[in-house]
Amino acid sequence: MTDTERAISVVVNGVPREATVPVRWLLSDALRHGLGLTGTHVGCEHGVCGSCTVLVDGQPTRSCLVLAVQMDGHEITTVEGLSRSDNRGGQVLHPIQEAFRECHALQCGFCTPGFLTTIAAGLDARDPSVEITDEEVDELVGGNLCRCTGYANIKKACRHAAARMRDAAATDVEAAR
């Protein structure tokens, strides 16, 4: 009735995977050690810093606070999966990734994967035509720690990305006319 290892099937960054995992593996262990997806960074390993945040079925989730075995049947997106392929064999970064580059929103980069996954999910879930408020930005970044940047440029990147997504949505509306 109880197991110390389990076979699971998950979809990671769009790719279906089957595997047998020790039940005491955290999702972060499975991603980093099992799949070599070392973009997911592990800082505190008890939920406080946010650097390990990934998307589980699209929802930001601390990968250090769920067991890999619990992910059976779920879809996981890590920072490696935030970009989209274009139709010429290249990759298009998510607007928040572009904005981090433009706004110098990272220094050492340790915290960056957790910020990117959290903010990307938050921006994707909101109505892009509505201007983002300072409160929304605070809520987007408030659960993640950064020891380098002082947050100012991370918040600037959020506003940049939101503005870019608003312009893109407006262009789509124009094009549809």
């Binding site: 109880t2 197991d3 389990r6 995992v21 020790p22 005491r24 593996w25 955290l26 262990d29």
Partner: peptide, 16 residues
Amino acid sequence: MLGGDPHPVKPAPFSY
């Protein structure tokens, strides 16, 4: 593939 060598992990062993 996942699996392979169980790397050091933090939680003590348990069954599930």
